[in-house]
């Protein structure tokens, strides 16, 4: 992972070859995007991999967070505020989703005493 990040400057420089500003960070938009992609992929792997529903849910949050990071980065480097404003909505939605999701998990735990997806196979296949 770190090795990958070390290549980021290569990408970062692409945007900054004609820079005139006094302090421009070497790590530009591509680096942020790469980071976001890595987070997203990690979250995705987690959702598919884990059996504990709570952890799966955390991984889903990780995916949403990856999107917000990319959004903020785009917004910053393009100079449009819309992306950053969208983050507000995403955070609100994520919070609501977590609340509902955890309520369902708790309700199910009360009946089944498990949070493992492997044991959630009572619906007929």
């Amino acid at each position: 992972m770190i090795a990958l990040l070390n290549h980021a400057p290569l990408f970062g420089l692409i945007l900054n070859n004609g820079d005139t500003g006094p302090v421009v960070p070497a790590y530009g938009l591509p680096a942020y995007l790469l980071l976001s992609a890595v987070l997203f992929a990690l979250g995705f792997i987690g959702v598919l991999l884990r059996k504990n529903t709570l952890v799966i849910y955390m991984c889903l949050e990780l995916m949403l967070l990856a999107s917000t990071l990319a959004l903020v980065a785009f917004s910053h480097f393009q100079g449009t505020l819309d992306g950053a404003v969208f983050v507000f909505f995403i955070l609100t939605i994520a919070a609501a989703e977590v609340a509902v999701g955890l309520a369902i998990i708790v309700a199910l735990f009360r009946r089944r005493h498990t949070v493992s997806v492997e044991e959630l196979n009572h619906l007929k296949h």
Partner: peptide, 15 residues
Amino acid sequence: EAGLKYLVLGALSSA
């Protein structure tokens, strides 16, 4: 159980 399945997969698709 159905609700949880819908929740996880729905949230995944949303993400």
